[in-house]
Every structure is written in structure tokens, then in C-alpha cells.
Amino acid sequence: MTQELRIVPTDRPPADGKARKVADFRPSLMLGEHGLCPGCGEPVALRILLETLQDLGIVNNSIGVVGHGCYGSFVRIMDVDVLQCLHGRAPSCATGIKRMRPQTAVFTMQGDGDMVNEGLQEVLHTAARGENVTAILLNNGVFGDTGGQQTATTVLGQRTKTSIEGRDPGLHGHPIPVADLVASLDGVGYVARGAVGTAGSIARTKRMIRAAFESQLAGEGFSLVEILTMCPTGWFVGAPQGPDYLAESMEQVFPLGDLRARPKPSGAGA
């Protein structure tokens, strides 16, 4: 790579006045604009999730199960059949749905507070049962919806409203790498961790989501894609600083990549 990269300033509108909002490029499955904070990574994750359903041609054969967090408001703008369920219980609800509609692609959308705090038991057991559903974890390391308190994935040293001097393992314990736990279980088809901090990580994460759904459609068992997302409001940093903060803090503790590759299909290329 010898080509020089042009630095595009993102902390102010482009000088040519041709700026368009990312929402203008939304997939047709997005029924309207999201109402989340500037710099939030969750709408990006939603976009690549919905694009994947379209790419796989399963838009009208999918059921989403959405937990409680900022992303809960996506239920209003995603043109997919959805059960909005109780905090932490999405994997259990998804289990009931999938068992009654095994031909349907079933996915959960949960935050770190939802999946790792309130619902750790649900996700681990659902994975170990080998339920053929796909879980999407939007992990920003804080309770964004309630204003930035510590979750089970808050990295050490991170300041939150309930660990104001930074997360101290002696006082607040250690973060839980839930995707690694799930990847260690039998019954699991595919587990990966991506991020939405850069164009490159977004593209790679979208491929992970696709692999997870392909794994489900192939009946390989439970699949999970953990997506590290920016929460500049909950992190108390400016919106433009979100991606860098993500790379320097969370990505150091939760490395990106496949944590459990799909089983190799016999006699066929990957």
C-alpha cells in the first residue's frame, strides 16, 4: 500500500457543502431515522444487520427479539417482525420462537447490560442447548440508556457513573468476556467479535453477521456476534473521539476476530 491516504476531517462538515447524513444511505428495511446520540455505534450495527438480512434474502422470514437498552427504540424503525422482550431474556424468548418456527431465522439484539449483566444465564444456557438462533451483542461497556453506569463488560480503569474514579478490580471486579465464554461451549456454531469504529471494522463485522446467519441457516447451533460500539455520551468523550476511544480501551481488552470458526463443510470450500 503505497497510495497516500487523504485525511478527512470528521469533526466539522466538509467544505464543499455536499454532506449527507449516514441515515440517508439507510437500507429500505429502516423505516425512519434513529433517535440515538451523535456518534453512537448502535445504528451502524443495526444497518449492517438489516443489510445482511437483505443480502441473504431472508427479510420476510426473520423474527427479531430485542432486549432493553438504547437500541430498543430500533423496534420502531426496523421493518422486521419483532418481539420486544424483558431485560436479559431475549435468548429464552428466541428459544420458544425458534422451536415453534424452526424454518425462520431468529435473532436477538441485546446490549452488554442486557446480555452480560441481567441475562448471562440465558445466553450461556441457550448456547449450551445449541439453540439454532443468532445473538447480536451490542457492547459499549456502559449502561447507555440510563446514562453511563458500569456494566459487566466495563473495562478496568474506565470511568462510569458508578465507578467514577475508574473501574477498580478490587472494588468493582473484572469485565466478563462473554463471547469467549460462549465460544468455549459445545452446541455453538459460530462466535466472533467485531466493531463499528472504522469503515474497515464495519465491513469485517458485516461479514461476521453474515457468517452467523449462514451458520444458523445451516443448522449448526448457536451463533453470537459481539459488536463493540461507541457510546461517546456514556464514556464522557466527544462524538468524534468515540472510535479512537473504542480502539484504545475496549478493543485492547476484547480483541476482534473469529472466536469460534464455523465447522468446515465437508467436501466444499469455505
Binding site: L53, N60, V75, D81, V82, Q84, R101, T104
Partner: peptide, 20 residues
């Protein structure tokens, strides 16, 4: 919920808050 609502603009929703 049977999954067929997706992409129709009239997808179904079960939600305690019934936001639509």
C-alpha cells in the same frame, strides 16, 4: 409473529409499550 412481515412496511410487533 411468523417472520413474513419483514420488508412489507407492515411488519408485526409484540411490545408492551406498543409504540408501533
Amino acid at each position: 409473529l411468523d417472520g413474513t412481515g419483514g420488508g412489507t412496511g407492515e411488519s408485526r410487533q409484540i411490545w408492551t409499550w406498543a409504540m408501533g
